[in-house]
C-alpha cells in the first residue's frame, strides 16, 4: 500500500508544470528522482532481511541434508529433481498428469466457490446474529460448538450427503471459513455506534437502506477481519481435503508425490502452497483496506 502511494505521487505531480512553463520541470524531476531513491531504499529495507534469512536457511538445509543417510533431499537436489515441473507448469498429459499451474488452479477454483458462498452466507448470518438479540441467543451457542469441529471431520459426512468429491470439498471450504466471518460480522454489527442508528432513524432509512448504507460500511473493518481469517482457513482446509478426495488439485498432487516417493516434488508444492496462501491473505487484506478506506478514522 505504502509503496503504491509513493509511486503515484510524482506521476500525478508531473503533468502540471509541463502544461504551465517550460522552465519549471527540473524541480519535479529531481524530486521524483529522490522519491524513486527513497522508494528503492524502502523496498530494500523490506526485501533484503528476509532474503538473507532465506539464503541462510537454504545453506543450513543444504549442509544438513547433503550426507548419504539423509531422509530428505537438499535444496540442490530438489531443484534438479523438479526442473521439469518448474520450467513448464502448464503441461497437460490428461488425467491427473498435469503441470502445477493446473493443480493450483483447480484448488483455487474450489476455494473461490466455497469461500464466496461462505462470505455471503456468513455476512448474512452475522448480520442477523448481530442485529437481533433473539437470533443471538438462539444461534450463538450453536455456532460456538460447531466452529470447534475440525474441517476434515465434516468431510465423511459431506461425502455421504453429496456422494461426490467435488461438492464435498467445496462444502468443507464453506463450513471451515464461515465461522470467523459470522462471528466477526456479528461483533461489527453489534458495535455500530448508537449515533449512526439515531441518524438512520431520524432520516427514516428503511431496513434495506440501513443495511447497505450504515450497517455494512460501519461493520466493514470487522467483516474484513473475518474474511481474512476465513481465507486462511480455506486454504488450510482445501489441501487436506484434496488429499482425501483425489483428482486434480495441489493437495492430491502432494499426496500422490508422497505415494510415489517424490519428496522433491512435495517440497516444491509446499513452496507454491505457501506463496499462494500468502497472496490470498494479502489480496483480502488489500481489498479490505480499499473498501474501509476512511471508515476507521472518524
Amino acid at each position: 500500500m505504502t509503496l503504491q502511494a509513493i509511486k503515484t505521487e510524482p506521476a500525478m505531480a508531473l503533468p502540471a508544470p509541463s502544461a504551465a512553463v517550460v522552465a519549471l520541470p527540473p524541480t519535479p524531476k529531481r524530486r521524483s528522482a529522490s522519491r524513486w531513491l527513497g522508494m528503492l531504499r524502502h523496498a530494500a529495507v523490506r526485501v533484503v532481511p528476509p532474503l538473507i534469512v532465506v539464503v541462510l536457511l537454504l545453506v543450513i538445509w543444504e549442509l544438513t541434508c547433503r550426507g548419504a543417510g539423509s531422509t530428505l533431499p537438499p535444496p540442490s537436489r530438489v531443484l534438479s529433481d523438479t526442473r521439469d515441473l518448474i520450467v513448464d507448469p502448464f503441461y497437460d498429459h490428461g488425467g491427473i498428469d498435469k503441470g502445477l499451474f493446473w493443480h493450483i488452479y483447480a484448488s483455487l477454483k474450489r476455494v473461490a466457490l466455497g469461500y464466496s458462498l461462505a462470505a455471503v452466507a456468513g455476512i448474512a448470518l452475522g448480520t442477523l446474529v448481530g442485529q437481533s438479540i433473539w437470533a443471538m441467543r438462539g444461534l450463538d451457542p450453536i455456532f460456538q460448538v460447531l466452529r470447534t469441529i475440525p474441517p476434515l471431520a465434516w468431510l465423511p459426512l459431506s461425502l455421504a450427503a453429496f456422494r461426490d468429491g467435488e461438492p464435498s470439498a467445496i462444502f468443507v471450504i464453506f463450513i471451515t471459513s464461515i465461522w470467523p466471518i459470522i462471528i466477526n460480522t456479528a461483533v461489527g454489527i453489534r458495535n455500530i455506534p448508537q449515533d449512526y442508528r439515531n441518524v438512520a432513524a431520524v432520516v427514516q432509512l428503511n431496513p434495506l437502506e440501513f443495511f447497505w448504507k450504515v450497517m455494512l460500511p460501519s461493520a466493514a473493518p470487522y467483516i474484513f477481519t473475518g474474511l481474512r481469517i476465513g481465507i486462511g482457513l480455506s486454504w488450510l482446509a482445501i489441501i487436506a481435503a484434496e488429499m482425501l478426495i483425489g483428482g486434480v488439485g495441489i493437495g492430491f498432487f502432494i499426496w500422490d508425490a508422497w505415494n510415489s516417493s517424490h519428496i522433491s516434488e512435495i517440497i516444491l508444492a509446499l513452496v507454491y502452497v505457501g506463496i499462494v496462501g500468502f497472496v490470498l491473505d494479502r489480496l483480502i487484506a488489500g481489498l479490505g483496506k480499499l473498501v474501509t478506506h476512511g471508515v476507521s478514522a472518524s
Binding site: Y196, N198, K213, P217, S218, A220, G294, V295
Partner: peptide, 8 residues
C-alpha cells in the same frame, strides 16, 4: 452533540 456524520 458529537456531529454523528457517517465517516464513510
Amino acid at each position: 452533540q458529537n456531529h454523528s456524520l457517517l465517516p464513510w
